[in-house]
Amino acid sequence: MSNKFNSSSLTEYCKSYARKVAGDFFAHHTVISGQELLKLSPVSQVNLFVISTLSEKWRSDAERFRSPYFDFEHPDVRQAMQVFMNTISQHISVRREHLEPLLADATRRTLILIFDPRHYFDEALRNQPDFSLSADAAHQLTRYTQINKFVPAALEERMKGKSVVYVNQALNWLDEILMQRGRELEKPEKYIPLFSEKVLLDPGVLLRKSSYDFAPPQPVSTANKSFFDTEVDDPAVPPTNGLEVVVNGSGADSETTIKPHFLDNSGPSAEPQAPSMQPSQATTHLSEVSTVSPKGDEESSGPVTIGETFYRAPIESISKSISLNQKFMFINQLFNGNAASYNEAIEELNRATSYDQARDLVSYRYAAQYLWDMSSDEVAMLIDILKRRFA
């Protein structure tokens, strides 16, 4: 689970949203078809995730037809199976009791994709079978992703000519894509009024912390070999450019106004926030925490605050204690923009058995290899993390 969310609040919201959406539809219907599913929620990504779950079920059911007693690779059989399965796909019929769990899960996935896209795609890759990403799986990820679609599309592009790659390779690509194109990520606030058409969405209740640094979506193409090739166009929503969209009423009677968002990029809060295990940089600046001497000794610059005490607390894993913003800074400033070199170095530092051994790696290997300025804030921040790791 993404650590940006209050788990219980997320679960409760998803259930409430699914109950409301399903209730509105099934008040006048007994079952829902595929075409109706595509228009069910005002948030098209929710509908698409429901369709993707049905697609997975459709594929698994096709595999269950296979038997060791018949030749399922014969051209006639393959063609007949394809026609049969495609025909089935055009006759989706789901009752409310079966739809609500799918809707709740689709809502959960959509909210994580909106508010924590890095975690969403990381989890999607790590959950691949045999820790391998196939070309077909990469294509399916692109097909059923509408929000921040450029991320799986870029992954799929890097897989051209490869039928399968290990997930760790795909994760390295993901790091590079987000580092290079992170500003293209969509802004969550454009989706808040869409969710709120059914159930009020309050990020202050849903999230522990939030950092909004997103941008408009890209157009989505369509395909039609089977129903599950269908993709959904995003409803027209004006870009907010850091502004808060306020919707009064709903439907044709709704009135939309735009006002400056409380997280406008021109203010102090434009600084990206670290995950919850990190202190606020507004209250704990590196130069206020400690000064690191060439020998690795710490000289306190003043009374230790609560924030500083938390910042110096021991940690079990170097990689997990580094926020996404710190990670990008280390990659850019210390490893010349090479995410793979950063990952290798952090893994090696985490395997060190003592602070002295880790400090020697920094001083005599990485500093020499990458020409580090040992008095820089980036190096001092890394050293401080090492101290906490081996405290």
Results as ranks from 00 to 15, higher is better:
His91Asn: 14
Asn86Lys: 05
Tyr212Met: 05
Pro216Thr: 05
Tyr144His: 10
Ser210Ala: 12
Tyr144Val: 02
Ala339Pro: 00
Val379Glu: 06
Lys295Ile: 04
Pro268Phe: 13
Thr257Leu: 04
Pro152His: 05
Pro279Trp: 04
Met85Asn: 06
Asp253Asn: 15
Ile322Phe: 07
Leu141Cys: 02
Gly23Gln: 09
Phe335Met: 10
Leu171Glu: 13
Phe72Glu: 07
Ala170Phe: 07
Phe328Ser: 14
Ile51His: 01
Met277Asp: 14
Ser134Gly: 11
Met329His: 09
Pro303Tyr: 07
Ser250Asn: 12
Arg143Ser: 04
Asn248Met: 09
Ala270Trp: 09
Asp253Gly: 08
Glu63Asp: 10
Ala340Gln: 13
Gln281Gly: 11
Pro42Gly: 02
Ser33Asp: 13
Gly307Phe: 06
Phe65Gly: 01
Leu371Arg: 12
Phe335Trp: 06
Ile306Thr: 14
Ile92Asp: 05
Thr230Gln: 10
Gly267Tyr: 12
Leu386Met: 11
His285Val: 12
Ala282Asp: 15
Ala27Pro: 00
Leu48Cys: 04
Ile114Leu: 09
Phe26Arg: 03
Pro239Phe: 02
His98Met: 10
Pro279Lys: 01
Ser67Tyr: 01
Leu99Glu: 04
Thr256Ala: 11
Ala236Pro: 01
Arg143His: 10
Thr240Asn: 09
Ala18Cys: 06
Asp356Asn: 10
Lys15Gly: 07
Glu184Cys: 03
Glu186Pro: 02
Pro272Leu: 09
Ser44Leu: 02
Asp175Glu: 15
Val31Gln: 11
Lys295Gln: 14
Ser301Glu: 12
Ser60Gln: 11
Leu40Val: 08
Asn127Ser: 14
Pro193His: 02
Ala313Val: 08
Ala22Leu: 05
Asn86Arg: 12
Pro219Leu: 02
Tyr166Glu: 14
His139Tyr: 10
Ile114Met: 07
Arg365Asp: 14
Phe115Asn: 07
Ala340His: 08
Val43Asp: 04
Arg66Tyr: 07
Met159Lys: 03
Gly307Lys: 01
Asp384Ile: 15
Pro279Gly: 00
Ile306Pro: 05
Lys387Met: 07
Ile88Gln: 12
Val165Glu: 08
Ala154Phe: 04
Gln45Val: 02
Val304Cys: 04
Arg365Lys: 13
Arg95Ser: 11
Asn224Gly: 09
Pro275Ala: 08
Leu48Pro: 00
Leu37Pro: 06
Leu48Thr: 08
Thr145Pro: 02
Val164Arg: 09
Ala274Ser: 14
Asp297Gln: 12
Lys149Glu: 08
Gln281Leu: 14
Ala137Arg: 09
Ala236Val: 14
Lys225Ser: 10
Ala62His: 01
Leu243His: 13
Arg109Trp: 06
Pro188Met: 05
Glu316Leu: 12
Leu103Trp: 03
Arg126Asp: 07
Glu97Phe: 06
Gln333Ala: 12
Thr353Phe: 00
Gly23Asn: 06
Thr305Ile: 08
Leu102Asn: 01
Tyr13Val: 09
Phe131Asn: 15
Trp372His: 06
Val232Ile: 15
Ala368Thr: 14
Gln82Glu: 15
